[in-house]
């Protein structure tokens, strides 16, 4: 089942320098948001990155999409070193790597109609004619469980779950190979979370997607991912098969995380 590596990071690092003003002038303090992270993501798999707020998981997501530049280390996508790419190359790389963010509303430009939002990625990369783009947008809209009529509406007319569906449609319209989901369901209601997770799984099968799934929710990650990497203070403290980690965690922090999951009476019996 071992398939080719799609994305690989080698000793990836990101430091932020915080300037602290003290009574006697400025003092620079270096914050290591991501510290020597080496990970490989295989074609077609889902890698979960778990950690609590401030552990560096979102920074990691932005590093591998080159939304921010690393302080050290390398990222390879499909054997090409993306950390060495110039801006125009990075822009065309976006066709292959897409992101879905946590806040479904804030991810959408409030002044654009859904149709314009969905056709924008195609427009940016100059793909197809205007008419074909519209058709593709309608098709994508139906794929994520919305209707054609929704195309003429504005984001504020939708619920959070529907907005996240629009975000997913926009991310997938370019047919990317890798999709990075940064807490895609944590802002949604419980009953909507399951819908969106199922949708992401369906789309993964249909488009043969590879996912990097970032979340703080171990239940969701265990369900959704093949492998898990646990991140703590910028470092990967444990990684491996999802079920193994869930059943037999090795690192203390992983154990602590697992113990903190609220369990209802029913699931205790499981």
């Amino acid at each position: 089942m071992e398939s080719a590596i799609l994305l690989e990071t080698q000793d990836l690092e990101k430091n932020y320098t915080l300037k602290k003003k003290t009574l006697f002038g400025k003092k620079a303090e270096v914050l290591q948001a991501v510290n020597k992270v080496s990970l490989a993501i295989h074609q077609g798999e889902t890698l979960g990155i778990v950690g609590e707020s401030g552990c560096g998981k979102s920074t990691f997501a932005r590093l591998i999409t080159r939304l921010i530049a690393p302080s050290g280390g390398k990222v390879f996508f499909d054997q090409k070193e993306i950390t060495a790419m110039a801006q125009p190359e990075v822009r065309s790389l976006r066709k292959d790597i897409q992101m879905i963010f946590q806040d479904p509303y804030a991810s959408l430009d409030p002044r654009k109609r859904v149709l314009a939002i969905l056709t924008e990625p195609l427009e940016i990369h100059g793909i197809k004619t205007a008419k074909e783009r519209r058709e593709l947008a309608y098709e994508m809209l139906e794929k994520v469980g919305l209707q054609r009529e929704h195309a003429s509406r504005f984001p504020h007319e939708f619920s959070g779950g529907q907005c996240q569906r629009i975000n997913i449609a926009r991310a997938l319209i370019l047919r990317p190979r890798l999709v990075i989901c940064d807490e895609p369901v944590s802002a949604l209601d419980v009953s909507i979370q399951a819908q969106v997770l199922n949708l992401l799984l369906d789309l993964q099968e249909e488009f043969h997607l590879t996912y990097v799934f970032i979340s703080h929710d171990l239940n969701v990650v265990r369900y959704f991912c093949d492998r898990i990497a646990v991140m703590y203070k910028g470092e990967i403290v444990e990684s491996g098969d999802a079920e193994t980690i869930y059943q037999a965690p090795v690192h203390d922090y992983t154990k602590k995380l697992l113990q903190a999951i609220p369990k209802s009476i029913e699931s205790n019996e499981e």
């Binding site: 779950g161 009953s191 979370q193 399951a194 997770l197 239940n219 969701v220 265990r222 369900y223 999802a242």
Partner: peptide, 25 residues
């Protein structure tokens, strides 16, 4: 459905049971 919607297993156990539609305003 609220209880079931919280995943308690892995992918192999199949798709999550869902509640159709949206939370109405």
């Amino acid at each position: 459905l609220l209880i079931e919607a919280i995943p308690h297993g892995n992918k192999k156990s199949g798709r999550l049971p869902t509640i159709e539609g949206n939370v109405p305003s």
